[in-house]
Design a protein around this nucleic acid. Structure first.
Lengths: 202, 202, 202, 202
DNA sequence: GAATAAACGAGACGGTACGTCGCGTCTTAAG
DNA sequence: CTTAAGACGCGACGTACCGTCTCGTTTATTC
């Protein structure tokens, strides 16, 4: 019985949750993170500002929730080869971070993380763990196929593949061609194989 | 020749440049990017706001300038091997982006870039070109040594090496251990060599 | 026939009436009219806001009711002389308007009246009629005693006597000494007698 | 040398003072005290809200200043008789308090005075002293004419004459007919004469 | 008794205004 | 022409309060 208490008072209207998030997403797409205002969001959702602040403690939390809302988290496919798997995963990451909403929100979120460790922690738990699991599965498949003689750290693979995509999108503001994603996957695949076969680190 | 005309009237006081930048750095370190205000910076520097805006077009430019102020831009050393060069360069990048000031400013700057293409363009020209040249030199040395049979795109190498560092620092908020930098360098080096030896892309 | 229908459903809890008024009076005394909030009143009375609004249509009505709650409306005594009657009535008015609750509420109510003619009308009917009747009785007694040869307008007497008390309390924020009330009564009494004996108005 | 310090920085723009007060007066007349908004005032004055708050600490102060702004304070005329002087002064008071602006602002101001002793003190000093001087002059003239054998307290006369006008306007919300003002003046004049001739108070 | 109908505590809701803060610009007098 | 000081327009922020509206529950009257 984790929640024994009976809820008192008028319950939150879940229509409002959706209306607010939809309004926030719409505004994000139209005017960009910094020009989204709480007043405009409330007006667009047909809602009072208090109803928003009851749900989200600040603009940052609202826009984070709005951008995360329906982010698909399907696992990456098994393509039959390490290189193919990496390429597929690179595409997935690129889609997740490169869509219009994410391109608006992600940099702003990174800026907020600097001053809000709680937000940072929440984001880590929400995303990093999930993605690291994807990488662990991918490396395990490669091991089973015999492509990797020795197990590798999923965190390292995660950095190696996601980092370039992330940097291209947010530091260079440059969407990445699928050919380039393929090249990245190739280099990382070859490098991981060599590393796995080579001397132990240290 | 940025300023051909002979300057008339009272010349700018260069003490002010330093005072302003010092004040900005101090505030950045103490309160973080978003809580640095122009008024506070001016007050701390004992300077009027106009004197700041005469030198820096906006808060973003000021804080950017403050954070890069004494950033060494020495070229990466020749360590004698591709792997060693990559490791050294990774360290350099990590230092540049990982110092306290840069960790405050960089994410905020990325957020600003989204709404200000001019700022984005300036940052690209200032940094990307410089770093890409570093990578070009590094790859050329590797070619001359015979480590790389075929030339590779410096931009790709740049992404592959910097991306992971960048992501670890700003998405994961996690400073990177030098051992990990070494591993990254190893994987990338091996991957680049394999890629250079392998079939042409396409 | 104020309430012909037999009441259905749960009857109102009269404990709540008292609790609400007591809470309102307490808050009025502690924080003053404008800082009394409906939420605070409800919380202090241990009552939902709806229960308050079921009884009082607005904050103004509640606080008005709270302040008049136990206001004695005994008629002014017959002291045997016009001057004495006026002095006694002046004391009565001063007590009614000068107690701590009334001093909080009355000015606020006057401010509300400006924008709410309904409230204004209700207050007129509740008080003015009552007080005017007091004055009519007082003047009639004076006529019967022979102090006033001709009848006078009770409304005028009302204004003349209450006005100074009212103004002293609310415009000057100055409670009035009983000696001063006596002097006011003297002047008004003398003036009314002279006016009654003198030429007809017009 | 009360203010030896030379003013630094950009001086306040006096056009803004006027624009703000004019906007406030306009809104007061159009929509009434409680519906005057700081945003609306700023917009109408073509001014930022900060410029208003730099001058007036709150809505109450602004609207007070706006309503007081050009209140004529001409002294009451000498009509040749106490009764005539009182009638003239009653008319003056009635005009000052009965004009549209004053009818909006005065009740609200009285409500504010309850919670702000500073405001109350300022209003006293601004108005009461002035009006009491008027009454002192009036009574002195009557003495010199021989209408009043003994001097009377101007404060008492002030209360007696202003109180009825004040109460009629703000408690009864009833503008006062000039005939009624005349009757009030008659009664007060007669009463004061009788009082002055009669026994000393106490 | 069961059904009905209203009242109840709690608290969410739309709306509106508040007063504050920061940016980047403008305006003084002084140098 | 620069400087320190600081006022300015703009626009967003987050808070507070009003009066209304659900909820689930309680309490009396009516069938």
């Amino acid at each position: 019985m984790p929640d024994s208490g009976q809820q008192l008072g008028r319950p939150r209207d879940s229509h409002i949750d959706h209306a607010v998030l939809a309004a926030a997403r719409g505004l994000l797409a139209e005017v960009g993170y910094s020009r989204v205002t709480m007043d405009a969001t409330a007006a667009r959702a047909g809602v009072g500002k208090a109803a928003i602040y009851r749900r989200f403690g600040s603009k940052a939390e609202l826009l984070f929730a709005a951008s995360v809302h329906d982010m698909s988290i399907e696992p990456p496919p098994d393509t039959g080869s390490l290189r193919g798997d990496l390429h597929a995963l690179a595409r997935l990451i690129h889609e997740r971070l490169g869509n219009p909403l994410a391109r608006q929100v992600t940099p702003a979120l990174m800026a907020e993380m600097v001053r809000s460790p709680e937000l940072a922690a929440r984001l880590q738990q929400t995303f990093v763990a999930q993605q690291r699991a994807d990488f662990a599965a991918l490396l395990e498949r490669a091991e089973r196929r015999g492509e990797l003689p020795r197990p590798l750290d999923p965190a390292l693979a995660h950095l190696l593949l996601s980092g370039p995509v992330f940097m291209a999108l947010f530091a260079f503001q440059d969407p990445v061609d699928d050919t380039v994603l393929g090249e990245i996957a190739s280099v990382i695949a070859a490098g991981l194989v060599a590393r796995s076969a080579g001397p132990a680190p240290g």
